[in-house]
Amino acid sequence: MPLPRLALTAGEPAGIGPELLIRLAAIPLAATLVAITDRALLERAAARCGASIELIEDDGSNATEPCPGTLRVRHLPLAIDEVPGQPDPRNATHVLATLTEAADGCLAGRYDAVVTAPLQKSSINDAGIRFSGHTEFFAERAHVDVVMMLASPELRVALATTHLPLAAVASAITAESLTRTLRIMHGELRMKFGLADPRIAVLGINPHAGEGGHLGHEEIDTLIPVLETLRGEGMRLTGPLPADTAFVPAQRRHYDAVLAMYHDQALPVLKSEAFERTVNLTLGLPFIRTSVDHGTALDLAGTGQADPASLIAAARMALELVARRVTHSPSPLRGEGRDEGPILPRTIK
């Protein structure tokens, strides 16, 4: 049976991404791995890792059995050879070209999913190209609204806003944007994770979720009316909850996922608990995209010592989502109607 084709992007050439792709290619994985990057970059990364990986030109076909130690390549040349730990803005167009090929290839059916290694946003911006991240890039390429989610075996957290200064968060969360985010999140939890009736906890924006208006009015003016409307449509929504107590065990058993209002409100909780096992995924795309939950680790680049655990977890989750898309429809929640606790991702054993 043909194996799914996973497009792999190496991210920042001077970061740890190329080495992570080499590490991923060395393990048994039920997929055809296609690295979209410069072939010579991967050769140098393999040498730094002391790994023997066979790099072959991708012919667009599907393998029928796992072939660890082999990595197909869709060659897109660098503008200039990388210096580990020193991003060069001259390679920004290369990085964006790899993302474009991955997205367009998924849309055209050449790949079943894309798994992205970390990139250096500042280097792309230093090249004079406005760029805020993978999530926003893929959304624009596919012409859809998306939601950023990070998931570990224990917890799923989505974001109402992504890469914004804290001062811009409150004004960015409108009734329209929050409604759109929750609808995408609800639909994707059903379709991608197989939860028939997902339970979503929604965090407040202000300390103590505004404390009845004494610490801010966003909850009263925006969040509560949206939640009441969507509950009327049948969504199981809890909140707005104070962020400082939403993650204690007594609360967690009441929900399947959390919607946080901004990037640093909930992600420190997730990453402190399961940094090596957390996967970044983009909800709302017409294709599957997963990624690592960390950055380019420029201090480790070139040493061959970077931990590939998060990229391996991202690849495994992508394959799980591909399999569910092909063979499953939303299934009933375990213990539906009872508070037995969230259904946990089964990505990582």
Rank of each mutant, 00 (worst) to 15 (best):
P2I: 09
L3T: 06
A7K: 06
L8C: 14
A10L: 14
G11W: 10
P13F: 11
A14W: 02
G15M: 05
I16Q: 10
E19S: 00
P28W: 01
L29R: 03
A30E: 15
T37G: 07
T37C: 15
E43A: 13
A46C: 04
R48F: 00
G50M: 07
I53A: 02
I53M: 05
E54Y: 02
I56T: 10
E57M: 05
G60H: 07
G60K: 07
G60C: 01
S61N: 08
N62I: 00
E65L: 01
L71D: 02
P77W: 08
L78W: 06
I80W: 01
E82G: 09
G85P: 15
Q86F: 06
P89N: 04
A92Y: 12
T98W: 08
L107K: 14
Y111L: 10
A117D: 11
S122Y: 09
S122D: 14
S123Q: 11
D126C: 03
G128Y: 11
I129L: 14
F131D: 12
G133R: 02
F138S: 06
D145N: 11
V146P: 01
M148Y: 06
E154S: 13
L164N: 01
V169Q: 09
A170C: 11
S171P: 04
I173A: 02
L178S: 00
L182G: 00
L182P: 01
R183P: 07
G187E: 07
M191A: 15
P198K: 02
T222D: 01
I224P: 00
V226W: 08
L227G: 12
E228K: 15
T229S: 10
R231N: 13
R236T: 14
V248N: 05
R252L: 13
V258L: 14
S272P: 00
E273V: 06
A274F: 08
R277A: 07
V279L: 10
G284V: 13
L285M: 03
L285H: 04
T290H: 07
H294L: 00
G295Q: 03
D299Q: 09
P308I: 03
S310N: 10
I312R: 10
I312G: 02
A313R: 05
A315H: 05
M317A: 14
M317V: 03
L319V: 08
H328L: 06
S329M: 03
L333I: 09
D339T: 14
T347C: 10
I348E: 08
